[in-house]
């Protein structure tokens, strides 16, 4: 083992391989098997997504081709017996209830997040966060139960008569106070999406760099002014993302809405009126749907819902991600 012959062989080696820079990656059999097993798990997840889209489209296809996609989306008549399928009342109901939910939940959710992030005593943060998490963890059928037996009676009297009396000049607040309807669904949805909006906004607000806020405070700004001129502008896109995530959740929420919206396919301007939503009609009719056209129509509604949810979630992730990347 003297060094001399080693040098000689080294010379040979280098002559044979003029580019000595070898990429060193030797995978043995176990590692290679493992790597391909992992990749197939990743592929499985893609397959799940593919299966969801393909099987929905496949189920919906008979109805969509019989009705025509445009008429399906814009039609207002829904009659499984006569085979007439127009989804507009459901789309309308979904949009109206989600809008009510957003209008109610955004100020509360963002206000809560701002309070916790910027104003509250530290000791308050944990218990309130815990409460918000608890709110998020309650099953939607329990919200529906509560909505049906607690919220609806309160809306019927005194809330709706009160609104009709003072805001009745708006078409939104007219008609008999039934309790069930768009307003009830919107309020329950607002409560359900509140945790999403609050917690994501809070996450985003936490990423606001301290120097930014301190800069504003050092200029003599009050706490609220610092929030207004430093924190909120920085977190704007992320908070908007939080709202979209909440909206995505509201659109697809089924049970609580089904239990309080009244389940009647009609389009009314008044929030006091009963209506229907995309998920609700699927929930109510699917188990009893006997014809291919009927299940196809319901799957078509599912497809509409899927499209809305995917678009909203994609956009929301983009916006939340952008605020968080601002730091980098």
């Amino acid at each position: 083992m003297s060094p001399a012959p080693l040098d000689a062989s080294l010379g040979k080696e280098q002559a044979a391989a003029p580019s000595p820079a070898i990429r060193l990656r030797a995978l043995n059999l176990g590692d290679r098997t493992y790597a391909s097993a992992l990749v197939s798990f990743g592929g499985l997840l893609l397959a799940v997504a593919g299966v969801i889209v393909v099987s929905l489209a496949h189920l919906a296809q008979p109805t969509l081709s019989a009705t025509g996609p445009v008429h399906f989306v814009l039609g207002t008549d829904w009659n499984p017996v006569s085979g007439s399928f127009g989804a507009l009342p459901f789309i309308y109901g979904t949009l109206v209830t989600s809008a009510v939910a957003i209008v109610l939940a955004v100020p509360v959710g963002v206000g809560l997040a701002v309070f916790l992030a910027e104003m509250s005593p530290r000791a308050l943060r944990r218990p309130v966060s815990f409460a918000v998490e608890t709110l998020a963890g309650i099953p939607s059928v329990v919200y529906g139960l509560w909505g049906l037996f607690v919220l609806v009676p309160i809306l019927r009297d005194p809330v709706e008569p009160f609104l009709a009396k003072y805001l009745g000049f708006l078409p939104l607040f007219r008609g008999p106070p039934i309790g069930l309807g768009f307003l009830a669904a919107g309020v329950v949805l607002a409560i359900m999406i509140l945790p999403t909006i609050a917690s994501v906004s809070l996450e985003v607000l936490k990423t606001v760099p301290a120097p930014l806020k301190e800069g504003a405070l050092a200029l003599g700004a009050t706490r609220w002014e610092a929030v207004r001129i430093a924190s909120l502008p920085f977190a704007k896109a992320g908070i908007f993302g939080a709202v979209l995530l909440g909206l995505g959740r509201a659109l697809g929420e089924t049970m609580a809405v089904t239990m309080v919206i009244g389940n009647s396919p009609s389009i009314h301007a008044s929030l006091f009126a009963v209506g229907y939503s995309l998920p609700s009609v699927i929930a109510n009719e699917f188990a009893e749907a006997t014809t291919k056209l009927h299940t196809g129509a319901l799957a078509g509604l599912g497809l509409v819902l899927l499209g809305l949810a995917v678009a909203l979630n994609g956009l929301a992730r983009l916006l939340v991600g952008r605020t968080q990347r601002k730091l980098a």
């Binding site: 083992m1 080693l6 080294l10 080696e13 000595p20 820079a21 070898i22 990429r23 060193l24």
Partner: peptide, 15 residues
């Protein structure tokens, strides 16, 4: 990361 050259352990090239 890359490496090039010779490393012998008991005379055997580890690369």
């Amino acid at each position: 990361a890359r490496a090039a050259g010779r490393v012998l352990l008991d005379g055997d090239d580890v690369y």
